[in-house]
Write a protein that binds this DNA or RNA. Structure first.
Length: 425
RNA sequence: GGAGAGAUAGCGUAGUCUGGCCUAACGCGCGCGCCUGGAGAGCGCGUUUACCGCAAGGUAACGAGGGUUCGAAUCCCUCUCUCUCCGCCA
């Protein structure tokens, strides 16, 4: 959420940011109108409340019954007017909140302008669009042939876009999770094991509601929401709190499955495990001092890249353009890994600095040691990494001519020391 | 799922029966000052947040939301969470 004062004073900056994001801006004028109305209503209501408070005290002290009755009757009129004003204020604030909740963060000046993800910019490439000197197979063939991915039984259990990992496939998934968590721990991120279902207000605080409700799974009976990313509970951890300045930065890492409804178009990303309604992810998150958040952003991007590098994958860094930038983000870099079998770059991480945008919505503050006043923290989040696509890249990058898969060195401790995944009996 | 007890400021608690002197006492913690060679003890002062306003100042918040009332921490309703006991369960 943006600061209403900022919108009031610089509506053109907000409008430009929304145009850059290819959004319509007419709501901004309505918002300014509501803001003005709200302050007028408050002014009148508060003056009347001041009068009522003092007069009510006086009534309490008044002895003469006739005088009391007279003053009570007079105050009744005032109270009715206050009730009316409060009602109008509430309605105004509801509409205002509804609009401001849907205004996205303002892109950083470093974010390149672009209409869609087609205009994202490659910042740096590490490695190549490599191909083996034999015919590269896509992971769905590799996985099916080795018996480590079972698409049919996944569909049987849960429908389209679900799959089952078998044996060493399952173990490889588990190994990747453990490897990533341990790596991020070394990088200074503290591990958390979190609930996979959260309450609605946590999703609101993280910026997922109300705008993205139709991408979420919701248990109506108990009003639980399945997390679409660990970012949501990681934001919720300190929602509404005032953090001791000495505690910052607070860096966390967590594994969770992610649940997304993804009303996907038929025919797009249908093969393999690239996009599903449930997938594993290891996330990084940071609560930062405002002055340090750019530094933390670099640090987090490095942490995500190091994961790819140590796995021996070919990867590149992409700067999201204004048209692709996520709602909460002020600036965001994607990390993509090369998959020689599918012959495409796969997004495995988005590393965003949300600035104070998410913190304002979730009311996450710290006490500034100099002024003694609470100030909003900056929050950052980044995948480290998304599992299925990392698994794809590992399988396809490390495939051998006979269809087996060499286990990357760094994963072997979690794979019982085996060097190669071969067809199981 | 059943029965009961609770939720007040950083923490612990008083106030609720009997509405007004309660934005709210007290203790602990924390901060500043005095005292001290230094520390402690002691003493004094201070210690929530948001919103409106140039300011003076004002308004709001006692788990959340609604209601009654001139006036609600206090009375009524709904909900959430915590604890204890019983039941059930991986």
């Amino acid at each position: 959420m943006l600061d209403i004062a900022l919108i009031r004073e610089n509506p053109e900056i907000v409008k430009k940011s929304m145009r850059d994001r290819q959004m319509s801006v007419e709501n901004v004028d309505r918002l300014l109108e509501l803001d003005k109305t709200r302050r007028e209503l408050l002014g009148e209501a508060e003056a009347l409340k001041a009068k009522r408070n003092s007069e009510s005290k006086a009534i309490g002290k008044a002895k003469d019954p006739a005088e009391r009755q007279e003053r009570i009757a007079a105050m009744k009129v005032v109270s009715d007017r206050i009730a009316e004003l409060d009602k109008q204020t509430k309605e105004t604030e509801e509409e205002l909140k509804n609009i401001i909740s849907n205004i996205p963060n303002i892109p950083d000046e470093k974010v390149p302008y672009g209409v869609s993800d087609a205009e994202n910019q490659v910042v740096k490439t590490f490695g190549t669009e490599m191909q083996h000197d034999f015919e590269d197979k896509p992971h769905w063939d590799l996985g099916t042939n080795l018996g480590i991915i079972d698409f049919d039984r996944g569909t049987k259990l849960s429908g389209t876009r679900f799959y089952v990992l078998n044996g060493q496939g399952a173990q490889l998934e588990r190994a990747l999770i453990a490897y990533m968590l341990d790596l991020h721990k070394k990088q200074g991120y503290k591990e958390r094991y979190l609930p996979f279902m959260v309450k609605g207000d946590i999703l609101y605080g993280a910026g997922q509601l109300p705008k993205f409700a139709d991408n979420l799974y919701h248990d109506v009976e108990e009003d639980f929401w399945m997390v679409p990313t660990a970012e949501v509970p990681l934001t919720g951890l300190y929602m509404g709190e005032i953090i001791d300045e000495a505690q910052l930065p607070m860096r966390f890492t967590a594994y969770t499955p992610c649940f997304r409804r993804e009303k996907m178009s038929a025919g797009r990303d249908v093969r393999g495990i690239k996009r599903g309604h449930q997938f594993d992810k290891v996330e990084m998150y940071c609560y930062s001092l405002p002055e340090k958040s750019e530094e933390e952003h670099e640090r987090m991007l490095d942490a995500a890249c190091e994961t790819c590098k140590l796995l021996g994958l070919n990867y590149r860094i992409i700067a999201q353009c204004t048209g692709d930038l996520g709602f909460n983000a002020r600036i965001c870099y994607d990390v993509e890994v090369w998959a020689p079998g599918c012959k495409e770059w796969l997004e495995v991480s988005s590393v965003s600095n949300d600035w104070d945008f998410q913190a304002r919505r979730a009311q996450i503050r710290y006490r500034d040691s100099e002024s003694g006043k609470p100030r909003l923290v900056h929050t950052l989040n980044g995948s480290g990494l998304g599992l299925p696509r990392t698994l794809i890249s590992v399988m396809e990058t490390y495939q051998n001519p006979d269809g087996s898969i060499t286990v990357p060195d760094v994963l072997r401790p979690w794979m019982g020391g085996i060097e190669r995944i071969e067809k199981e009996d």
